[in-house]
Write a protein that binds this DNA or RNA. Structure first.
Length: 500
RNA sequence: GGCCGAGUACCCAAGCGGUCUACGGGAGCGGAUUGCAAAUCCGUAAUUCGCGGGUUCGAAUCCCGCCUCGGCCUCCA
């Protein structure tokens, strides 16, 4: 069965057909901006891209996956598409400087807050750490192939070349204010991806157009490609003066540099559809002269938290590391952020996180049981091997992960049979997409302090139980519960873990 | 105002015209186990799919209208 994917460009689900049937699938993902830690909404988008990549691999494709790490600081008041306000990287620097002063600087961070490159590097390394914990394959590959996660600050040359090409082809112009703009009327297909065609843009307006900048542009929707600004915190020399690139430019330039003029897949969050991806299409197609930039556009819908929009003021804003620090396993977070279909809004809840953890625990137990009977001599096909085809079919159906998860659950509830080795291999194959079995452990090391207390209480309880003083043993257990510890009595003794 | 999505049990969620008295998971409830719990195992839940019409022999699934929620309309994953 062919892989079928929904394509934002055609608003329909279609068979995936790679450009190069013998080579690798060319896949570009819009990655994080590194002037702050990535939050769980960001990670839903990145993890869905990873899920797609792993599904492609399950289907037998080789994948060249590129994800940028945006280290140029976009403007805080980027509301006129022409730059303005403060650079977000310098804002981040100020935040770090304040944290430094108040002694709240994260561990291991001794950086110069006035150096935007250092600020970017600081958050980029934290992002890579989070991403590797969550099993983002491209972040793992980055260790040996750093070019797979390019940084715009290192690709300014390519961006300048792209702007030059667009000017030469008549798709861009230098306006009277010295800024280079892309001319949207020069690209007939502008609006095809988002539905925001030029006539509709004019109707809608949206109140975010700054009249001062409009005067110099040929069309209100024309967007900036290069802004000369000799005072800017990050700036590079260019034929149009020292300044900085427009914020849509980096993806077009880096995708072309690393994957070619035409790519198979491009992913991002739904908010990227317009203007970011619409502008990328315009830039890339005009520069290459090809009718398509990416054949398929893959967009993940937004994540809500406890039924509400995630926001810092509502107190429902989480970064991945916030949750890891609470003892949430990367596996549970990975599953929770991906198990809702990518084209529906998903609702992140603490209860959901526990549900995910529960499923993973059962899968791990099933895996351990298979390992335990690897030498029992059983042969043949069991539930896992039978499940594999349906698991794959579910994912091939526009990444129907909920169904693929239910396939595993059904297989696990069946009586085990067949060759344990083969069964385990089938489970591993399914897990190669889900990526949870190998990361089902909390990242926070329990403090020695807590461990000591817990061990003491467990010993107390053990003695009380031996003496049949159940009131005392229950008291010990209540104290453990108060410490946030859950205990489990097993034939091998009592184990404990931090309750999430 | 324009353009997109979504509404299924207490919660998450599959379903794409008949095989749906609707897959899974969690919570709950009953039982086994346990000193009591936790964990585990067994059993158990919507005759109904936001509301109202329509098409059809047949609709959660298609069409129309309405309501609610979310996204985009130049910050945002």
């Amino acid at each position: 069965m062919p892989l079928r994917l929904y394509n934002t460009l055609t608003k329909s689900t279609q068979d995936f057909v790679p450009i190069d049937p013998t080579g690798a699938v060319r896949f570009y993902s819009c990655g994080p901006t590194v002037y702050d830690d990535a939050h769980i909404g960001n990670f839903r988008s990145f993890l869905n891209a990873d899920l797609l990549r792993r599904t492609l691999e399950l289907c037998g494709y080789q994948v060249r996956h590129v994800m940028n790490i945006t280290d140029v600081g976009h403007m805080t008041e980027d509301d006129n598409a022409d730059g303005g306000g403060e650079d977000k990287m310098s804002l981040a620097g100020r935040r770090i400087a304040e944290a430094k002063k108040s002694g709240k600087l994260p561990a291991g961070a001794d950086i110069d807050p006035s150096n935007p490159y250092a600020v970017a590097e600081f958050y980029a390394s934290r992002f890579l750490e989070d991403a590797r914990h969550l099993g983002l394959k491209v972040a793992e590959e980055e260790r040996t192939q750093p070019q797979l996660m390019p940084r715009p600050t290192r690709c300014v040359k390519e961006m300048i070349a792209l702007v030059s090409a667009l000017i030469a082809r008549g798709n861009a112009y230098v306006a009277s204010d010295g800024v280079v703009y892309f001319s949207v009327t020069s690209f007939a297909a502008y609006g095809q991806l988002s539905g925001n065609t030029l006539d509709k843009l004019r109707e809608g307006e949206g109140g975010r157009i700054d009249a001062a900048h409009q005067a110099v542009k040929r069309h209100p929707a024309d967007f900036m490609l290069w802004k000369p600004d000799p005072t800017h915190i990050m700036r590079w020399p260019s034929p149009w003066g020292e300044g900085y690139p427009g914020w849509h430019l980096e993806c077009s330039a880096m995708a072309e540099m690393l994957l070619g003029d035409e790519i198979d897949l491009h992913s991002g969050g739904e908010d990227n559809i317009f203007p970011h991806h619409e502008c990328e299409v315009a830039q890339s197609c005009c520069a290459s002269g090809l009718p398509h930039f990416s054949r398929v556009w893959f967009h993940t819908r937004h994540l809500q938290v406890e039924g509400e929009k995630m926001s810092k003021s509502k107190g429902n804003f989480f970064t991945a590391r916030d949750l890891f620090a609470k003892g949430v396993t990367p596996a549970a977070l990975r599953l929770e952020l991906t198990r809702t279909h990518y084209r529906t809004n998903s609702n992140f809840t603490m209860q959901g996180l526990r549900d995910s953890q529960r499923m993973i625990d059962r899968w791990c137990a099933a895996d351990a049981a298979l390992l335990a009977r690897e030498n029992d001599g059983a042969v043949g096909v069991g539930p896992m091997q039978r499940a594999l085809a349906e698991f794959k079919a579910a994912l091939e159906d526009d990444l129907n992960i909920a169904r693929s998860v239910s396939v595993i659950n059904i297989a696990i509830s069946e009586p085990p049979s067949g060759s344990a080795h083969e069964e385990r291999a089938a489970l591993a194959r399914m897990n190669s997409v889900l990526g949870v079995l190998e990361r089902n452990a909390p990242l926070v090391a329990e403090s020695d302090d807590l461990a000591t207390k817990v061990e003491a209480l467990l010993e107390q309880r053990k003695q009380a139980r031996a003496a049949k003083d159940f009131a005392a043993s229950d008291r010990a257990r209540d104290e453990l519960t108060a410490l946030g510890v859950r205990i489990k009595d097993t034939p091998q003794g009592t184990t404990w873990e931090r309750a999430v």
